[in-house]
């Protein structure tokens, strides 16, 4: 059937078929292409034998090498943990102050803490611990629950108003809602502004001593043991310190929640974070 002949013009063989007088030149695939194709077929067969390849009804063919990327990743992580275990042991035995006092441990804590902070803390507290409305600044020296490394470690571990049994917890009562008159709230707000030297008046002194000093202290300087904020430093958590902002907080206080990180992060990570946060600038 095939009538192979040379095309006169090009010197190339034809396929030997003729369709309505049209003949086609036989231009085979380049040899290098054919060789690579053949090699790929061989490779694929080897791949089926050695590597996981075919799905079965409930499983898949494992291949002789029994490779799995998940297992490889697990092994990789185990190697990392192994490499870190030297540090982990030293961190578990040391207190946060001891860690900060040791050059080597502190460098490790600051380096690791930077990543942990970026992964876990930045969404609320900001990239450099600069905070935001309702989220405390970690870079300044005004601490609600104390700024020593141990206090910071405790806050991270157990959280604030969290679900942990040992959580740091306080609630500022609602002074609006018929407990205080509007004039009294205004008076208290003026006194608070007066405390931080932003105008106001001291007419509300009596009221402040009666109602506020239990948590904020007689002088308004705050009580870290119970998380009573310092009112004399002009640093505000909610609002910018305007009279309206202060009155709003007295009338119907806002409260933030920070989760307990124990259980989410291991002991080493919490200690690294405590040292790092303390090193953001405001540590006491």
């Amino acid at each position: 059937m095939a009538n192979v002949e040379k095309d006169a013009l090009t010197g190339t063989e034809t396929t030997g078929h003729e369709w309505d007088g049209i003949r086609e030149l036989n231009t085979p695939l380049p040899k290098w292409w054919v060789y690579i194709f053949a090699a790929s077929v061989v490779w694929a067969i080897g791949y089926y034998i050695f590597m996981p390849a075919w799905p079965t009804l409930h499983d898949y063919t494992k291949g002789i090498l029994d490779y799995s990327s998940r297992a490889a990743h697990r092994a990789e992580m185990a190697r990392v943990a192994e490499a870190r275990s030297v540090w982990a042991d030293r961190f578990r035995e040391a207190t946060v102050d001891e860690i900060a006092g040791n050059d080597e441990l502190r460098r490790y804590a600051m380096a690791g803490g930077a990543y942990l902070f970026a992964d876990n803390c930045v969404p609320c507290h900001g990239a450099g611990g600069q905070g935001g409305p309702g989220y405390p600044v970690l870079a300044d020296d005004d601490w609600l629950w104390g700024g020593t490394r141990e206090a910071i470690e405790f806050s991270i571990r157990h959280g604030i108003r969290s679900e942990s049994d040992e959580t740091r917890y306080n609630v500022m009562p609602v002074f609006g809602d018929d407990y205080l008159e509007d004039e009294q709230i205004a008076q208290a707000a003026d006194y608070v502004l007066h405390l931080s030297g932003q105008g106001g008046s001291d007419a509300g002194h009596e009221l402040f001593v009666d109602e506020c000093s239990v948590c904020h202290g007689e002088q308004g300087t705050g009580l870290a043991e119970m998380g009573g904020p310092n009112l004399t430093d002009g640093i505000w958590l909610y609002g910018t310190g305007s009279r309206d902002d202060v009155m709003a907080q007295i009338r119907n206080p806002k409260h933030g929640v920070m989760p307990a990180w124990e259980g989410r992060l291991d002991d080493v990570a919490i200690k690294q974070l405590a040292v790092f946060v303390h090193g953001l600038g405001g540590g006491q």
Binding site: G126, D140, D142, I235, G281
Partner: peptide, 9 residues
């Protein structure tokens, strides 16, 4: 740069 500066108490 974050924060640019910090006000202390």
């Amino acid at each position: 740069r974050a924060p640019l500066f910090v006000t202390l108490s």
